[in-house]
């Protein structure tokens, strides 16, 4: 059942070849267009075979992304893309799997799944398109909305502090944590590419401006708030990664680039080892199991 660990079946395709024949339904000027472009470029640069690629999403503007990528794909339930992808990955470790979704999908309704994707080191790439607002339901506060933002549910301004996705994922034990903003296609493409090549759970938070419902963050402000992590940052040092993020948060800045990366066994590898340890194989005689229940 467990396939070779090189899950990226290679072909040679242009990034446009990864576009499915569905036009993105996002508003003009939406950051998600940029994230899609970066994803298609990353797929082309790696050379992923679309037949062995699965895009999985939940519900939200960003969760429509799979429709626009030529691949196998699932458009599932609000907040549940992570566990669906876990099932697909464990069932078929030979597939390349990309999860996409928004801040509400990933950190509000689906927030309970995040620690488990990270600690289990499920070998998928999770691209969180973080626009700090619920867009598809037309402007409600999300868990990453800045407090001063006015939305339909916070007409006088918010009353809650936002959470920081990358800080959570570092704490939860994700083995690859990175951050970018949608307008920075070069960095976003590189981070998605390296995330897909990383064996383990790769989390990439992409600040993706919503031109329609978020009037306090835009492409320009995301760019201006961002500081790429210094080249001397040691990505293997978890304490350093936490420190970079905490320092930036205190200064009201957004650290971009690869924050942390560590190699450790993935969930499917551990499963394969377990099967090997018990001498398992698909043809194992069921009678040996049934005989254990003889009186």
């Amino acid at each position: 059942m467990n396939a070779p660990l090189n899950h990226l079946h290679k072909v040679s395709l242009q990034s446009k070849d990864y576009k499915d024949n569905v036009t993105p339904f996002w508003c003009p000027g939406c950051g998600h267009h940029g994230v899609l472009t970066s994803l298609l470029r990353a797929l082309s640069e790696i050379g992923v075979d679309p037949n062995f690629l699965v895009n999985i999403s939940g519900i939200g503007c960003s969760s429509r992304l799979p429709y626009f990528v030529k691949s196998y794909k699932m458009h599932t339930l609000h907040g549940r893309a992570g566990p669906v992808a876990t099932g697909t990955q464990l069932a078929r470790p030979d597939l390349a799997i990309v999860v996409s979704g928004g801040d509400g999908d990933g950190f509000s309704i689906g927030g309970g799944h995040m620690p488990h994707l990270a600690r289990k080191n499920v070998n998928v790439t999770y691209v969180l398109m973080d626009n700090h607002v619920y867009g598809l339901t037309k402007c409600q506060a999300s868990p990453t909305s800045r407090r001063e933002m006015k939305t339909v549910t916070t007409p006088y301004g918010g009353v809650e502090e936002p959470l920081d996705p990358v800080l959570y994922m570092l704490t939860y034990g994700a083995s690859y944590v990175a951050q970018s903003y949608a307008a920075n296609a070069k960095l976003t493409t590189r981070l998605i590419k390296e995330g897909m090549e990383h064996k383990g759970f790769a989390f990439i938070n992409v600040l993706s401006h919503c031109p329609t419902f978020n009037d306090i963050d835009d492409a320009k402000s995301f760019k201006e708030a961002s500081d790429e992590v210094p080249t001397e940052h040691d990505v293997a040092d978890l304490d350093a990664a936490m420190h970079v993020v905490n320092l930036a948060n205190r200064a009201g800045r957004v650290p971009t680039g690869l924050l942390y990366r560590v190699e450790r066994p993935t969930l499917d590898q551990r499963m394969a080892e377990l099967v090997e340890r018990v001498g398992g194989h698909p043809e194992y005689d069921l009678r040996k199991i049934i005989d254990l229940s003889r009186p």
């Binding site: 699932m74 566990p83 697909t88 990955q89």
Partner: peptide, 12 residues
């Protein structure tokens, strides 16, 4: 998550 994983694995 259990039923979500089941659906994901069955799709595969």
């Amino acid at each position: 998550a259990s039923i979500a994983q089941v659906v994901g694995a069955s799709y595969a």
